[in-house]
């Protein structure tokens, strides 16, 4: 499975958020961290894969399928996104209802939806939260539940936007080990270098909407001058 950006340019409110961005993410290399300072374009890049912004120039391909409004549904069935703001993602009343939302929209029969919901919650160690109110969970719980909502759709690719931004160190470690147990290909936007080291064999560094560097995390994350240039150290 391959995700490729070819000279993709995306404007947001007149500003160029992605600027002739070119990169290839290959699932066979393992999870990839998307690193960059604030405003580098990480969130825009992830959201663009799901067709949330019009692509002004260039193309984005999921294998052979270009990201276009016509293909949006097919792509969103294969790619799931865990938003940075968990409150924007969790909107049903109970946790179980929220996790069931995606599979229900996939048109699956109720028994299958139920089975997937239970499964996803179990794999996120959140079965005990099933009947809880989504607005009254801790940040760590919210993160695991929103991830469960995506897992229940069984996507091939999972995009995570700053998954650790509101987690304490222990919740970060737990999330890292949960992510490593998942079969789906992951792209993780973050500026948490320790988390990136823990979860991703690959990494890509963005700067001002362009790709600054990409390759093995073990090499790039040790390159102090590169990190400094990217505003990460």
């Amino acid at each position: 499975m391959k995700l490729s950006f070819q000279n993709a340019t995306i404007q947001r409110d007149g500003l160029t958020a992605l600027d002739q961005f070119t990169a290839v993410f290959d699932s066979s290399n393992g999870a990839c961290a998307i690193l960059g300072a604030n405003g580098a374009g990480k969130s825009t890049m992830l959201a663009a894969i799901l067709g949330l912004f019009p692509i002004a120039e260039g193309t984005i391909l999921l294998d052979e399928t270009p990201v276009t409004p016509q293909n949006a549904r097919a792509i969103r069935a294969r790619v799931g996104m865990v938003f940075q703001d968990a409150d924007a993602q969790l909107f049903n009343q109970s946790v179980a209802e929220d996790v069931a939302f995606g599979p229900t929209n996939l048109g699956l029969p109720p028994e299958e939806v139920q089975a997937r919901t239970t499964d996803a919650l179990r794999s996120m160690r959140a079965e005990h939260l099933a009947q809880r109110d989504v607005t009254r969970l801790s940040c760590g719980e919210k993160r695991r539940v929103s991830l469960a909502g995506i897992l229940a759709m069984r996507p091939e690719v999972i995009l995570l936007d700053e998954p650790t931004s509101d987690l304490d160190p222990r919740a970060c470690r737990e999330l890292a080990s949960l992510l490593q147990s998942l079969p789906a290909f992951q792209l993780i936007a973050t500026h948490d270098l320790a988390f990136a080291r823990r979860t991703c064999p690959q990494c890509a560094i963005l700067q001002k909407g362009k790709l600054l560097a990409s390759g093995k995390a073990s090499e790039l994350l040790e390159n102090q001058s590169l990190l400094e240039e990217a505003g990460l150290a």
Partner: peptide, 8 residues
Amino acid sequence: FAMQCRLF
């Protein structure tokens, strides 16, 4: 946005 991403 998030709802659309889950195929709403």
